[in-house]
Design a binder for these strands. Sequence first.
DNA 1: TTTGACATGTCAATCGTTTGACATATACAT
DNA 2: ATGTATATGTCAAACGATTGACATGTCAAA
Lengths: 325, 325
Amino acid sequence: MATIHDVAERAGVSVTTVSRVLNNRGYISESTRSKVYQCMEELGYQPNEIARSLLKKQSNIIGLIVPNVSHPFFGELASFVEYYAYEHGFKMLLCNSHLDPVKEKEYIEMMRRNRVDGIIMGSHTLEVEDYRNLHHPIVTFDRQIDSEIPYMSSDNYRGGELATELLVKKDCKKIAHICGNLELDLLANQRTQAFQDVVSRHEVEHLIVQTDMNVFDQQQYERIIAELFREHPDIDGVFATSDIIAAYVVQHCYKLGKRVPHDIRIVGYDDVSAASWVVPSITTIQQPIEEMSKQAIELIRGQLAEETIRMANILPVTLIERGTT
Amino acid sequence: MATIHDVAERAGVSVTTVSRVLNNRGYISESTRSKVYQCMEELGYQPNEIARSLLKKQSNIIGLIVPNVSHPFFGELASFVEYYAYEHGFKMLLCNSHLDPVKEKEYIEMMRRNRVDGIIMGSHTLEVEDYRNLHHPIVTFDRQIDSEIPYMSSDNYRGGELATELLVKKDCKKIAHICGNLELDLLANQRTQAFQDVVSRHEVEHLIVQTDMNVFDQQQYERIIAELFREHPDIDGVFATSDIIAAYVVQHCYKLGKRVPHDIRIVGYDDVSAASWVVPSITTIQQPIEEMSKQAIELIRGQLAEETIRMANILPVTLIERGTT
DNA sequence: TTTGACATGTCAATCGTTTGACATATACAT
DNA sequence: ATGTATATGTCAAACGATTGACATGTCAAA
């Protein structure tokens, strides 16, 4: 591939001049400028960003680690993160940890080796210590590490409250809550806390089921849900911690001949686009995914500019009532 | 961040020795080796991949350009591409073109500036010429450019045939086909060709509706579908070119009080995971997304190794019968 | 005593670009 | 004639690593 030297030679000017054209510095006559551009065109020249990165000590890359982009929530997240990253001249390196601690650690090290400008962590299987020793601009999604690391989240407690209160208000007598793995130290666990608080306050019969560490494992969802209904056929309300799980519950109810929302009411979480196009459409707690993504990028930019940034970044959630309640 | 010099100094050895440890070259005693490793640990040293890339003239990055990762099909694709890329020591740079030719071109140039080892194109708004002048390892998804550029695809014609034949066999009298924008030169258009061939052969009443250039624009889907059923309330079969569109059709039928599959039968395409968890589950044509992703990486690797590779890579599709037929 | 394997060091070039310091030259205004 | 803005050139260092050539040891086997 052509280098700046080739361009200089072809244009009959010095490398410095080409560099000046490229970076708009110093005096350049219109005639040389256009001659240089023309030669670049002819050679198909593109400046080597690797060399630039080395010199400038910044790669303009932001790394995003999520459990899996094929999960709708993280797919939408990744899409917005990429969008806002690009708006600010960053590229996005994407990694799927599959919630495997080994992979997650390797990915973080890989990103440090590649000198990414910032890391956005949406997967959390590691210890607090591992994050502290990073010394790298970072933003965590949905996890609070300590007072040094900024995190981006939405109001999980309020979300759990809204969802549970809706089910209680709709007169559900026995409510199940399907949550993620509580061993992972996620802010999403506050949804479960809220659930417990609300059902206790109203003295409603309830139970809690955890999923395993595997993200988006369909068979697991089906197994857990089948078991839940086998043991508790009288459940008339479900608060699931994702729209996808909620959809599986809907499907299982359909198989059992339970009518939604007549016999059983279901609330999901996230408001991924799928929630609106399934039948019946899913009542859910909307997380402001776009705004969270945008602010995550801003938090990285703030760190790069060495500004003081807010550590706790919690956005409000909204209850979206649809067909399942 | 620590450099190889810092490590050398701390370990009391030369930079060359550290490099030898790092790259397992030449003679190194066990004692120095461990001392060097220990110093790296203490300094939190990670070798600068940017410097390495510059010297080795390869970045170990593969670029993936798709319309939008938030679309389930591309989300699953991206997930597998990343998985197999990582297995071979590559990182993945992800870009969402939103089917905007300007963005797509900018992304390609960005990737060339960053000297990615290969580009996987899943978005196609550009002209054949733009690809030819690339001089970069590349694989296209679902588009044949010329005899020089390898492409990865599945058997779209067969898929269209299977879908349409199923609807005909199930005795549909008036079948609608909702396809993507036919102005984009995609192999997916063969589905439409197959549709036309099959309905003509069986002399079944039919019609074809195109979507706009926007990927995954919910409102557009709803508008098109509503219009379709307003003008043709007697449709009793729909072959949609994606499972998501099929899901929207299901939803619309539900609103109209049409029973699926009793009054109308619907076939989707792709077999994204959503197809199996909506109610009713969607009959669809399965594309082997994982295998396609895996082979796309292999095609890039083949080009990097300067092997001769197959240009046409077409995998078989499978009809998955579910609840909508 | 010689030989050769092992262990490490020094030195310099290389990858492609940027940038500062400095030199030179033209053109035009004062 | 002098000064100043404009335009370009030369040169070298820097970014962080790799690598080949070559030197200089030590140590043990033949």
